[in-house]
Amino acid sequence: MRADLSIAARILRLSLRELLRNRVGLALLFLIPGIFLGIVRLTAGALPVPIEVYFQNDVVRLTPPQVDVSIVFVSASVAGFLSAYFALTLFQQDFDYWRHGVFMGLRPVTLLLGRFGFFVLLAAALAVSTTLLVAQWVSLKQAMIALSGYLLISIIYGTAGAIAGSVTRDFLVAVLASALLADIDAAWLQNPVYYTAAERMDLIRWLPAYYPTQLVFSAAFDDRVNWLALRGCAAWALGLFALLLGLLHFKLRGLSGRSHR
């Protein structure tokens, strides 16, 4: 048990070093938020925009300035996309190496603990920096809940990215699948200006970014905690994590615990 924890900690440290050696990834970490938020700052206006936020029993209509809505929304999309990309690299690139590790005696649960543990730390760092960045321009009503929203969208989209990376060995296909989902869901359908006027909300509510973006909007512009969104986020995160576990178990089956047959 102690040896497994020590190996998990070693995998976590190595994952951090791998990230620091991934120059493209590091550049994206600064470039994507810089470009997207820069464009928002350059283009969005101060006029109020009507948006709706969905609580357990009621719908709250708010009218924050367009620039504030855009900053909060674009930040959530960017956090989702970046975490999907990083999780994908963690669970797809060099996966054969970790398969071989399992063959040599590494327990799959130790691998998951180290790799997913590092991803959660990365998502937390992403959420904290996103919240701090957003707070420079938008007066967040509940900063800690907004941070939770950014963390949860990072974890949900990151797990989705890890699943995409586990399903296909083709990095480009996996990146495209993650980017497409993030683009359609987090960057388009969950845009409050779009969904507030949408005729059919049913589909939009069943997408993974719905609850985290609702959590972020309610925390940014309202005083109440959105428990419905929190529960929805937890369900999505746990469901996707269970799916990832199942996929990894399937991919690593037969490698550990060899016995005479």
Binding site: A3, I7, L14, E18, N22, D94, G101, M104, G105, R258
Partner: peptide
């Protein structure tokens, strides 16, 4: 059992030393 596959399976973003340390730690479990 030891196994040397034909595939190039090593993690390109680790150093040789990091790889050996990890491999030894994993093997040392058993």
């Amino acid at each position: 059992l030891g196994y040397c596959p034909q595939d190039n399976y090593l993690d390109r973003r680790l150093t040789v030393s990091e790889h050996f340390d990890l491999a030894a730690a994993i093997l040392q479990r058993t």
